[in-house]
Design a protein around this nucleic acid. Sequence first.
DNA 1: CGGTCCCTTGAATGTGATCAATTCGAGTGG
DNA 2: CCACTCGAATTGATCACATTCAAGGGACCG
Lengths: 244, 244
Amino acid sequence: MESCLANRLSRFIDLTDGEKKFVRYMEEDERDLTRRKSIVTIGDRVEHLWVLKFGWVIARSREAGGRSSILRIYLPGEVMGLSEIGTGTAIHSIEMLTDGCICPFPRSAVAEMYDKTPRLAALLTSLGSLDQLDLRERVFQLARLSAVERVSHFLLTLQDRLALANSGRSRRFHLPLTNAQIGDYLGLTDIYVGRILKDLVAAGHIVVEQRHVTIHDAESWAEEVGYRTIFGRIDTSWYPDPPG
Amino acid sequence: MESCLANRLSRFIDLTDGEKKFVRYMEEDERDLTRRKSIVTIGDRVEHLWVLKFGWVIARSREAGGRSSILRIYLPGEVMGLSEIGTGTAIHSIEMLTDGCICPFPRSAVAEMYDKTPRLAALLTSLGSLDQLDLRERVFQLARLSAVERVSHFLLTLQDRLALANSGRSRRFHLPLTNAQIGDYLGLTDIYVGRILKDLVAAGHIVVEQRHVTIHDAESWAEEVGYRTIFGRIDTSWYPDPPG
DNA sequence: CGGTCCCTTGAATGTGATCAATTCGAGTGG
DNA sequence: CCACTCGAATTGATCACATTCAAGGGACCG
């Protein structure tokens, strides 16, 4: 099974042959992109969704006054473009954070899904709903958590998400973001992010070397900063039966 | 047409008879609720979606340390529960902000929609996508805007959203939120919200009396604080054809 | 009348931003 | 092998936006 989407979706439901075929069709097209390469520019019409095969991708808002923030970090296996499907126009940009590979498939394929593979359609709806939960958590964090808490939650969440992507939690992971980008994600300045990371290292929570982070005791750290994972399983009980 | 959902959906597509019937079925059940009445408590299983017929509703996150924030304000005609559909479990609470009326319909009805009224399913997907856009904008605002800008954007956005709900923009509207609640929505303290509102009044942007706000010159104010509406139309071009 | 809820005002405090200078490191070209 | 550059991390000093704490006032309601 070389399909990373099938791989990911299989965590939730056992795909039928028809569904597998459809997934393959969605991943038919494949594009390798290099770091900083733009996928969507603000104002673009968006006629596709994308599966991110590997690499990291960010969605960013740019606004007046040079202020902008990173709205979403996409990890391998995730579906990109769900927030643009409604309007068909990008109000945020999407670009490669690292080298990587994406599989575009037309938005109209979603219409087909309703008919041919309704469970996949339901799954896509569920993924959109998870994106909403993540955004809500971020709203809370930005609104009510201190800078230290935000950085801590950020790293702990990343560890959890990477565990999902790589099917296996590891204490050490690659973090291809600059301090400035972390700041854009968390609503902080690059300088302050640097100071906080230094403090966290001093406190013995993490080790940082060459864009790699090692988390020492995730459990107790999570406890300390009030972090709890939100990646509960998807509930498929309401899904329609697979055809055939 | 007394159905507010049908009313709302009709802004996007002309409903067929079959679709109208389905919408009516979704709104069959109807519950009047009073202010502060809880609809969903954190941890609840969520087997329904709801259409808000009238009144205001808020989704709130509660966390350790008494800190919490308001994640979503639902206005009449909007669909509630889209962020819970994926996990089937509430990690945020939902409660009435004012007296109002909601129409619950089972999540399983969505599965039916894929088959019977795929365009409604697509519309629901689109609505979820709009919710994402709104959340993304809020992430940006919380991350990068000053308190004055946040309050300004908040009021201007509300005016735009109410215009959609009431089909008609008006300079004056009811704002059933306390300063503390506005603060929970914007990541500020009640006290500072009060000060800012006072400043905005002094600057001649708004008038506030008895929980009612009048916006003087929305255009120039929006210009001044860099606000732009994100409520672009829904793009239905990819929707499947209606059956029959 | 007391009680609750909400808004208001003032003064002090602190978290995180801002500004500016330096250091570090990887890559490049001589 | 050594200069050079460019991007990023670091450090110190200062500043300000928003919070916190505390007290008082107004509206509503039993």
